[in-house]
């Protein structure tokens, strides 16, 4: 049986080793070399790239990306939580179709969904046009090519995930819990803060980490909706490879991004594990 099992695992392991582990290891190693004068790699060992990554300029881009990603997380939560709650409160047979309806846009092309916002937000675009016609504004608002546009694009792209993660957490809570709390005289707001919210924290954590990770490494949204005026981590890495031709530094940044992600995912795993054991202890 063991040899059979190895045979089953072998092709997958081989594929992932050759095209995932080795390339990612290569990225790590590349970070310790120098950029050649005309791009390419100069095989001289150096730690300069890591020192450069904490330079205020690049650290600033890291922080800016984190801030944008965090803003996207907050808005996804604010939009997603009530939506997921509402879906979870519908009769069982209606929940699945409603969820599919949420996920449907996610399955279509991300570039096209991003492009839609260029059409909506530009100075001569639909939203400005409508507002001007209604007389609400006299001058078009600068909606596109700024942080607002980037956050809107990210929230639009990833809120379906947030809703899905929250739903799976919220739907596990029976209505009995809230009813019991209300029967005991707690108002609904208190019930929410004291009972519902803590119990759905694993869903919140899962959804948040997901949206954060997808946002901070994003390249398309800042590129198309930021008008080249905003550099996020994804763009910075892209630029090192296709513009500055500084592969070693690009590799260093990519490595740091993966490291940050690992830390976040570990935190989330620990968190979920702990609340699971707590639940067991309670039961």
């Amino acid at each position: 049986m063991t040899s059979n099992r190895l045979l089953l695992l072998a092709p997958g392991l081989a594929w992932l080793t050759a095209l995932l582990i080795i390339p990612c290891g290569l990225i790590f190693v590349l970070g310790f070399f120098e950029r050649g004068v005309y791009g390419g790699i100069d095989y001289t060992l150096t730690t300069e790239n890591f020192a450069r990554a904490v330079d205020p300029l690049y650290a600033g881009i890291f922080l800016y990306s984190a801030r944008i990603a965090l803003t996207a997380v907050v808005f996804s939560l604010l939009i997603g939580y009530p939506a997921a709650t509402c879906i979870a409160k519908q009769p069982k047979r209606r929940q699945m179709p409603l969820l599919i309806l949420v996920m449907m846009p996610f399955w279509s092309n991300y570039l096209i969904r991003t492009y839609a916002w260029i059409v909506l937000l530009n100075r001569e675009g639909l939203i400005n046009g409508a507002l001007t016609k209604l007389g609400a504004i006299s001058e078009p608002l600068p909606l596109l090519y700024n942080d607002f546009a980037i956050v809107t694009g990210l929230v639009y792209g990833y809120v379906p995930f947030m809703i899905l993660a929250l739903y799976s957490s919220i739907s596990k809570l029976g209505p009995e819990l809230a009813e019991a709390s209300t029967d005991l005289g707690a108002d609904s707001w208190r019930t929410f803060l004291r009972i519902t919210l803590p119990l759905t924290l694993p869903g919140i954590a899962a959804g948040s980490v997901f949206v954060f990770v997808l946002s901070i490494g994003n390249f398309v949204t800042p590129d198309l909706l930021g008008g080249g005026k905003r550099t996020m981590l994804g763009n910075l890495i892209y630029d090192q490879f296709l513009t500055a031709r500084d592969w070693p530094f690009g590799a260093t940044l990519a490595f740091l991004l993966v490291a940050l992600m690992m830390v976040l995912l570990t935190c989330q795993a620990v968190f979920v594990h702990r609340s699971a054991t707590q639940e067991e202890a309670r039961a």
Partner: peptide, 19 residues
């Protein structure tokens, strides 16, 4: 630009990432 390319690349990144 030869060797100055690195300086220019960094400078342009500083410009495009400034707030």
């Amino acid at each position: 630009l030869g060797d100055a390319q690195k300086l220019w690349s960094k400078t342009v990144t500083e410009i495009t990432s400034s707030n």
